[in-house]
Design a protein around this nucleic acid. Structure first.
Length: 639
RNA sequence: GCCGCGGUGGCUCAGUCGGUAGAGCGGCUCCUUGGUAAGGAGCAGGUCGAGGGUUCGAUUCCCUCCCGCGGCUCCA
């Protein structure tokens, strides 16, 4: 090709440009959209991300990448990681960079280095800022594999990466100021793009997530093209911290923990009201949906878990004790108990689907470092049920469950999605059965209309599952309910029923929870609503405030009236001022405040203040009660 | 469980370069009898996470343990 050759480049709007060979992506894009060019941080060439400075040598399609494009965002995060590596190796020359990918939130970079201190972080932040101010360019350099091995020097981690590159393929490096790093790229043009880079913190990890792996130090961060965008993000994070259920729940007096029972929640009176309401929510349709509630022992001898498979696959999570020379395990799940009930008598196909619900306390010996407020505990109660079904009943049951889930999560205004988890490495049964089960789950998911993704190898050891993930109002994901198809445990317990054909068949079991556990669900919900629970869940729904002491009799009578209508009300008897008591009710996030004083004594009305709204309305007591009952009946999210 | 960082009244935090601790909020009592987010005064409340060591003396320095936080891993 001669110097004067041109190639045809197609652009996103369908136009084409004849471009001189050797022109850069930047040249083309600048000419195409001069006004917007400043928002382009990289480009996509035939679907692959490239640097803006990359030369164009053949015909193809070119598309700009902005921060708002997922690929553009990744380029920025990756460049940020690169800059952090530069800063850290400047601060600690012995540090060996390993890898630094973008993540859903931001990025991280792992280093082979001594444990990092807060001072190191401060230094890194300072050096990052220095690089940003001096507008250093990200320069791509391509060399042969042999040269690359020389360039990475004694960094054995990078040597490993170079060794993986095929012979004859050029290896790319990026140079930023004095820092040179093996990197596939692409990057933003210069460090000016990283004005909104923030180092979130450091943590020690083990290489490859393997507990026995080598120790690494992970620097985590997040980057935005500008400082104001970063500030907005940090503000959102601050807001998230203020919603922390561990703080909010303690302040509202819902639950507590003590050092002597780590991971075992205490439910305080107010919290217990919430738990009972949640329980009522998920059980009120039990009769019409054909559920029967059972309660099975808290502990079983080891042999039960050997039968179920838990001893082999889950033993490290089972609390154990010993009596009369036998080892007992505290149940981590309700399924063995339900299996034993099914097994206890001869069963007919006419009994199916047999739906056994059990809300019993479960104990799981979670590793100490994983405990987290209510969202990760060692004692929990699931809204659990086991559905014993025949193969042709599966689909209908699953469809009903998904409808239920829809109703439940809509009530809480939680956005949810499904995750289909398939056969793990450690599994029971035949692969053909697994395939069939997975296909059934997938079919039902496809017709549900709710988005789902598939996680290969993440299923339970006894069957594939659908997990429910919810996002709270700040976009953070949580796993709550789960639906698990089980062809294995029923067979291990030799469960059988007599079919219409007179033959004995093994039932299939659907393990299912809707909200998951009260503990985690409430943790998520508290963060979702910032402690402002929906009125039907609020421990106190109405606070009556008598204006002065002489109105307390009036207040008492009103409390009794509300109580008789099934509304949880209390009286703010106090020598405090009215304003102070209103404030206390607001802080306690009580949905309604009703004031009674001289005016109300005369008119029979009450002055109602609704949580979160300033001002008040004068309503007759009857009107107010109707309003409250209406909100409770429809399980409104807000008062 | 692993790595790092923490632990001071109920809560949020200050402080002690080694001489046994303070504030605000909350609680209690009294005064105030109020009209929609903090009326006033007084009082009580801490073996400074636990144990051991160094020291004349440890909340402070060292070690071990417990718990928490941030991650890793795992998971409802």
């Amino acid at each position: 090709m001669g110097a004067g050759d041109t190639v045809d480049v197609s652009l996103p709007d369908g136009t084409h440009q004849l471009v001189a060979v050797g022109s850069t992506a930047a040249d083309v894009l600048k000419q195409w959209r001069p006004a917007e060019f400043a928002t382009f941080l990289a480009a996509s060439w035939d679907g692959h991300p490239i640097d803006l400075a990359a030369p164009i040598r053949s015909a193809g399609s070119l598309r700009p990448l902005r921060f708002s494009d997922p690929e553009g965002r990744e380029v920025l995060q990756h460049s940020a990681a690169h800059l952090v590596a530069k800063a850290l190796t400047e601060a600690i020359p012995q540090a060996l960079p390993t890898a630094g990918p973008p993540t859903e939130e931001g990025f991280y970079y792992d280093f082979d280095v001594r444990p990092l201190t807060p001072e190191d972080v401060a230094k890194v932040r300072e050096l990052v800022q220095r690089s940003v101010s001096s507008l250093e360019r990200f320069e791509r350099v391509e060399v042969s594999k042999r040269e690359a091995l020389e360039w990475v020097g004694s960094n054995r981690h990078k040597q490993g990466y170079v060794a993986e590159v095929a012979e004859g393929v050029p290896v790319s490096f990026y140079r930023t100021g004095s820092f040179l790093d093996l990197c596939r790229g692409p990057h933003v043009p210069d460090t000016g793009w990283l004005a909104g880079l923030h180092v979130l913190g450091v943590s020690a990890i083990t290489a490859g997530g393997d507990p026995a792996g080598e120790a690494r130090q992970r620097v985590r961060g997040v980057a935005f093209p500008t400082r104001p965008e970063l500030d907005a993000y940090l503000k959102l994070r601050e807001e998230a911290e203020a919603r922390d259920h561990r703080v909010v729940g303690a302040r509202l007096g819902l639950f507590m923990f003590i050092d002597e029972a780590p991971g075992f929640p205490f439910w305080l009176p107010s919290g217990m009201v919430v738990v009972r309401e949640l329980e009522r929510f998920v059980t009120e349709h039990f009769r019409e949906d054909g559920y029967q509630e059972v309660r099975t022992p808290l502990m079983f001898a080891q042999s039960v878990y050997e039968t179920s498979g838990h001893w082999e696959h889950y033993r490290e999570n089972i609390f154990q004790t010993e009596a009369d020379g036998r080892v007992y395990g505290v149940k981590p799940m309700n399924c063995p108990g339900s299996m034993l009930i099914f097994q206890s008598t001869s069963r007919s196909y006419r009994e199916l689907p047999l739906r056994l619900a059990e809300f019993a306390p479960l104990h799981r010996l979670e590793r100490s470092g994983t405990l987290h407020g209510l969202t990760r505990v060692r004692e929990m109660v699931q809204d659990d049920a086991h559905l014993f079904v025949s193969e042709d009943q599966i689909e209908a049951e699953l469809t009903k469950l998904l409808a239920w889930i829809q109703r439940a999560f809509t009530t809480f205004r939680l956005a949810w999605s499904y995750e289909l988890s398939t056969r793990p490495a450690h599994f029971l049964g035949e692969t053909a059965q697994w395939d069939r089960a997975e296909a059934t789950l997938e079919k039902v998911l496809k017709t549900s209309g709710v988005p789902y993704r598939t996680s290969a190898g993440e299923g339970a050891f006894y069957g594939p599952k659908i997990d429910i993930h919810v996002r709270d109002s700040l976009g953070r994901p949580w796993q709550t309910g789960t639906i698990q198809l089980d062809y294995q445990i029923p067979a291990r317990f030799h469960l059988q029923y007599q079919g219409a054909d007179g033959q004995l068949h093994t039932p299939i079991v659907i393990h299912r929870t809707i909200l998951g556990t009260w503990e985690r669900f409430l943790g998520v919900l508290l963060e979702h609503c910032a402690g402002r629970l929906p009125p039907w869940l609020a421990p106190i729904q109405v606070r009556i405030i008598p204006v002065a002491e002489r109105h307390e009799g009036l207040g008492h009578a009103f409390v009794r009236e509300l109580d008789s209508r099934g509304i949880r009300a209390d009286l703010a008897r106090s020598s405090e001022t009215l304003s102070k008591r209103v404030r206390e009710a607001e802080v306690a996030k009580i949905p309604w405040v009703a004031v009674v004083g001289d005016q109300e004594a005369a008119s029979g009305a009450t002055a109602v203040r609704t949580h979160g709204r300033k001002g008040q309305r004068s309503l007759s007591k009857g009107e107010f009660i109707d309003e409250v009952l209406g909100k409770l009946r429809e399980r409104a999210f807000e008062p």
